[in-house]
Amino acid sequence: MDNEPSVPVGLIGFGLAGGVLHAPVIDAVDGLHVAAVATSRAESVRTRFPDARVVAEAGAVFGDPGVALVVIATPNQTHAPLARAGLEAGKHVVVDKPFALDAAEAEMLVELARERERMLSVFHNRRWDGDFLTVRRLLRSGALGRVRLAQFCWDRFRPAVKQGWREEAGPGSGVFADLGPHLIDQAACLFGWPEAVSADILTQRGEACTDDYFDVTLHYGTTRVLLSAGTLVAAARPRFALHGDRASFVKYGLDPQEGVLRAGGRPTDPGFGEEAPAAYGALTGGDGVARPVATDRGDWRRFYLGVRDAVRAGAAPPVDPRDAVRALRLMARARESAREGCVLPFT
């Protein structure tokens, strides 16, 4: 067990992001504990975290001297203002994705964190998905050779528009703001930042009032990385498909961690983050034989382990917020490409 004092965490928001994706992971990391929660779902918090202080407003968490780290898990348009308030209150801050609505807001937060000497990170938990870790391992091993085409898809089948801010018209809504940051972050981790970008961002469902489909192509010389998500895809495309001059790797299905957490599971449960062999991806070489590749174990706790070490010991944050700033610049460039219908350089 960890012998150092536990870092008290203040959680802003206790909906899907805060209550399902953040809180159980924080609670499963030695050296962190949920000390305060700002939410209207007081009973839900008290049932799961009876020792946590429950308040109605984020300001009460920012003003709590017993909170060292705040986690922003609220609607997208509130991320930057709340992160700024947390930093100004002297707190270390984790922000759910997207980091901010635009790169200018994000750059302001990075500079403020530097001035206040506080840790700032962005919850790009998908860096610790098992399928992504497997792809990274294969690339590093050279098993694929030089990759010329990579496709990252995240599909859903939702003919009916869901209630909630994610599908309402307004800043920060839409599938590109929701899933684009994860796919761009994964692509940048594997291939770096592209030379150019082209994009198609659409609203396909008749009653939708924000984008529900995107197809973004990142240009790296003669290599192309395609990032796509749709809401009218009943037979999902591969989550990852990478094709190199030695072999191809194709993997279907999403990392299981979110599904387990949504069902009430915990990161400390036996087998958490492990995938069944039936879900493994396949590596196909020049002989045409598809060979299964065991999926690495995913573990989102590794993000919060990095946060703990950054707060306690001044280690580098697990996700550099400057990466998220670059991703927001790339997203803005992709939207511009979609409007103009052309390939645009990215520097």
Rank of each mutant, 00 (worst) to 15 (best):
G170C: 09
K162Q: 13
P171K: 11
F176N: 00
V175A: 13
V161E: 09
C153H: 10
D155K: 10
W193R: 12
K162G: 05
L202F: 01
F176Y: 08
Q186L: 15
I184H: 04
E195I: 04
R205K: 11
H182P: 00
A160S: 13
T210Q: 02
A187G: 10
G164S: 13
C153L: 02
A160P: 02
L190T: 04
S198D: 11
F191A: 11
A187S: 14
E167L: 04
A199L: 12
V175N: 09
R205A: 11
I201T: 03
E195M: 11
Q163I: 04
C153R: 01
W193S: 13
P171S: 12
L190Y: 10
C189N: 03
V161M: 10
A188Q: 05
A199W: 06
Q204K: 13
E168G: 02
S198T: 13
D155A: 10
S198P: 06
A188D: 03
E207H: 10
L202I: 02
D178F: 10
P194T: 13
Q163L: 09
D212I: 00
P181Q: 07
V197Y: 01
E207D: 15
I201W: 00
D211C: 10
E168L: 06
E195H: 06
A188Y: 04
E168H: 03
D155G: 12
L190M: 12
R158F: 11
D185M: 08
G164E: 15
I201P: 00
T210H: 00
W154F: 12
F157D: 14
R166H: 14
V197H: 00
W193T: 14
L190N: 05
G180S: 09
A188M: 09
F157N: 13
D211F: 04
A196F: 08
A177F: 12
A187W: 03
A196N: 09
F176R: 00
L202K: 10
Y213Q: 02
R158H: 08
W165G: 07
P181K: 07
C153I: 01
I184Y: 02
V161A: 08
A169I: 05
C189S: 04
D185E: 14
F191W: 15
V161N: 05
S173D: 05
G170Q: 08
E167N: 09
W165R: 12
G192Y: 05
E195L: 06
F157K: 04
E168P: 01
F191S: 13
C153M: 04
A177G: 03
A187I: 10
E207S: 14
A208P: 03
I184G: 01
Y213V: 01
W193C: 07
L190G: 04
D185T: 12
R205H: 10
F157H: 14
K162Y: 06
L190K: 04
G192A: 06
G170D: 11
E207Y: 06
G164V: 14
A187N: 11
W193H: 08
R156E: 14
G180L: 03
L190D: 04
D200Q: 13
A160V: 10
I201Q: 00
T203F: 02
F157R: 07
A169E: 14
P181M: 09
T210C: 14
G164D: 14
L183W: 00
A199Q: 10
C209S: 15
L179P: 01
D211N: 15
L179I: 15
L202M: 04
G206W: 09
A196M: 10
E168C: 03
G164F: 12
C153E: 01
